[in-house]
């Protein structure tokens, strides 16, 4: 399985030349799929949501691709400019991640779930006992104040470095480091409270 760093360049993905486009996207699809399913499996946990996860990831890939090719843009001008401004692979990964998060939020809205409360609540959406499920730590990440969840996910799921995050999130490297540190400290407290309610 290819790694995210093996993604083709944004220029290759934007290519209007048939052979280049086909080669670039055939290389990119499995990488985006793997990344997307990782994120989706944390935010849309449970066997019952397998279809939702796949739909979200496929839609995010399609929207990213169409945005890069400059067609079928249903979003705002600022969204179109976001696609135009992508020049690096890490920026591309980050944009894909943002699109995917938006699609996952759509699913939560559709199912009337509160986006901040991502733990499966109903019997229908709860993972079966035999299913490998995400650690309860990730739903807690989602409870942190922005942009900490995005930065933590960018680091631990997408594998971005702090320099790449600084460029992608348009903030200084020290600000990224500070958000990450404060986020991790808060997350540690939330985790302790969740695991030892009597000590909260």
């Amino acid at each position: 399985m290819q790694d995210a760093s093996e993604l083709p360049s944004p220029d290759e993905l934007r290519s209007r030349e048939s052979a280049t486009s086909e080669k670039a996207w055939r290389q990119a699809y499995p990488i985006f799929w793997k990344l997307g399913m990782k994120v989706a499996s944390l935010k849309l946990a449970g066997e019952a949501r397998q279809q939702d996860r796949e739909d979200c990831v496929q839609l995010a890939i399609v929207q990213l691709r169409n945005g890069l090719l400059g067609v079928r843009m249903d979003g705002s001008d600022s969204e179109a400019k976001s696609f135009d401004s992508v020049t690096t692979i890490e920026h591309l990964r980050n944009l894909y991640y943002r699109v995917l998060r938006a699609r996952i939020t759509d699913v939560h809205r559709k199912t009337a779930a509160i986006p901040e409360n991502l733990e499966p609540e109903s019997e229908e959406t709860a993972p079966s006992p035999n299913e490998p499920m995400a650690d309860e730590i990730w739903p807690l990440v989602a409870k942190l104040k922005p942009p900490k969840p995005e930065l933590i996910e960018a680091k631990f799921i997408l594998g971005l470095t702090t320099d790449e995050m600084a460029r992608s999130f348009a903030m200084s490297r020290n600000t990224v480091l500070s958000h990450l540190r404060r986020g991790l400290i808060t997350l540690k407290k939330l985790l302790e409270e969740a695991e030892n309610p009597s000590h909260a």
């Binding site: 499996s41 499920m133 995400a134 650690d135």
Partner: peptide
């Protein structure tokens, strides 16, 4: 824990 809490599935593209 954050690193190991990520599902370790292959997620192959169907």
């Amino acid at each position: 824990r954050l690193q190991t809490a990520i599902p370790d599935e292959e997620f192959a593209l169907p």
